[in-house]
Design a protein around this nucleic acid. Sequence first.
DNA 1: CACCATGATTGCAACAGTTACACCGGACCG
DNA 2: CGGTCCGGTGTAACTGTTGCAATCATGGTG
Lengths: 372, 372
Amino acid sequence: MPGNGSISVRQLASKLGISTATVSRALNNHPSVAPQTRARVLELADATGYMPRVGQRFSTNIGLVYPSHPVTPEFGSFENALLSGIMRGLAEHRYDLSLIEVDRDRADDESYTQFFRRKGVRGVIVRTIGPDARLAEAIADEGFPSITVADRSDQANVNFICSDSTRDSQRAVDHLIQLGHRRIALVVHTVLDSDHLDRIDGYNRALDLHGINRDESLVLRQPAGMEGGRLALAQMLAHDEPPTAVFCTNPLTTVGLLHSCLEQGIVVPEQLSVIGFDDSDTRYHTFPRYTSVCQDAVQFGYEASRWLTRSLEGIEGGSLRVHRPTNLSFNQSTGPAPAQPVRVAAATRASRPDRIREPRPAAAEPERFTGV
Amino acid sequence: MPGNGSISVRQLASKLGISTATVSRALNNHPSVAPQTRARVLELADATGYMPRVGQRFSTNIGLVYPSHPVTPEFGSFENALLSGIMRGLAEHRYDLSLIEVDRDRADDESYTQFFRRKGVRGVIVRTIGPDARLAEAIADEGFPSITVADRSDQANVNFICSDSTRDSQRAVDHLIQLGHRRIALVVHTVLDSDHLDRIDGYNRALDLHGINRDESLVLRQPAGMEGGRLALAQMLAHDEPPTAVFCTNPLTTVGLLHSCLEQGIVVPEQLSVIGFDDSDTRYHTFPRYTSVCQDAVQFGYEASRWLTRSLEGIEGGSLRVHRPTNLSFNQSTGPAPAQPVRVAAATRASRPDRIREPRPAAAEPERFTGV
DNA sequence: CACCATGATTGCAACAGTTACACCGGACCG
DNA sequence: CGGTCCGGTGTAACTGTTGCAATCATGGTG
């Protein structure tokens, strides 16, 4: 465990027998410092837990860390809700938030601690995306104050707050079984993070509990997004023994699947029951509104930022490893199992394109990134 | 116009005949400094364009400024797209982004310039929300480097990049008229910012151009959001002479309106044509996908942050006042005007909806990824 | 009136980190 | 051999901040 951060540049310099100027340059990645000198400085800085101050004061900045380019529009509402919660949690101790993308300007030979020091942040909230959980573990291994949000790790030194959807996933599938469904499809993302493993787990447990055979051919892996939902429905309809219900473990995928149902004239829930997943309000945007397992991203952000700042202020001690249970929101997308499942035949019969096609005029060329 | 920011605390102190300690405390809102002393310090700091440095270096932080608590989940995807673009634009000169909410910890007697100085940001991107345009103007009046995004101002000192949807709003309504519609409703937000005024303007121009009388009773003001769309549809159906088409100037409102159509068994576009508004991909999430006027929030963020940083680096000079035209995206929510408009009677009759619908061909959609 | 306690302001000085400039030493080339 | 260049380092001067002491006004009390 590093020291308490009360080391100064001058102390580092005197311990190393060099000048403060060289120490400062080494810490800031100036090109004019010899590699072995920089290595010695960084090593000692790490060992002593050096933390820069402005004047005599520590900074009060928290970093929200993304592995690479953050918050692309495709992330959907989760990031918004998360940010909203984070800002609320930081308000108590007047911390500020900086957005940091690790890939952008972290030097290759620079540790995460050094990188964050250089950015002037005291602690970070790590937003790992997909399978990049290594980032959170690497930061934790360096002992830098951090907490991961909406993901988890088996490493004991990783603080996190994540959702545990196992229970509600099981309840969701159980609900379908109670309604008489026996063949229930599961749609998961192509890459499986801990969240998706929970959902698979809950799905399996519900089936096992009712003595329903697991059918691997009903577990569909599709990329998260509208198109994934569309493809999943197509797979279901083409199945030899089609399911009468589906548990779709991603919000946008659920939207895509329900959208495809409407396109193909499949009535939900009369012909097909659907349970989905939601981070915010997406379940109310579809027709019908879908029953879903819901996680509260605002709450995640709030608790993570609050714990981190309290921890830095010395109010909170120890670690935080929280599994926050999800909620189950019942809406209009589930109903009794139909006598016969919908099949591809119904869909193909209805696929003659007698629609009125909209004119597609030569649309204005989309603006590209041009300098102004 | 303030100076070039090369003034130091010591120079301020000597000009005022006080110590640097007092100057520092005054600038940081320490409670132990006499009110009139602080007033004198702040006045001189403003006049000289003081800007704090860390050591000898200016900070490279940009603030994204919200009037109050930022990025609530209701904002939808606009904020995400904006942030994404901003981060990309900041990358070129290695600036960092801090999220700042003015209401949170700006002191009452503190100018915006002082507030931003205290936060250590060199320039700000102002995200005014709704009718809060005064914020951008107040900041500009103080001469602090700033640019407003997705809003505009008549004040010549306000830099901004906004969308001009007048042309496409007119084209959208014109498109409806070409399809034979004569009674076209307009749904606008209850508070009218410059964006909404554009849309009203385009709507009016299209009607005027075709010699169609404006009917004030077809201009519906509803709060932005799903519920607003629902209420707008109810108003339309209850109208004495119901419209056969509607131009809905907000994404979520459009979603709500289309959702309500599905609930009530109103077939779009056969019974009602709908044109909406979109910041990102929302138009592909509804059934049917709606034709919409689209603004590119990523581009806004990119251009704003790039101009601001280049301006601070001295590469760019002068002001930036850009009206970026929107795009018109044609989808499946518009069609020829029906012989008879849908009325409230029809809606009630269809309240036990026969939801099996004619299929429609799926349009190709770009692959997307999502969080979680 | 003298005197002390109290609290509000302020200054001194020591601290934090950064950078311009000079210096040094070795490599390279004429 | 001498000049030139360049990578690397230190000196010193510069930022802004804060702990502690000093100062000053004020008011209550003997």
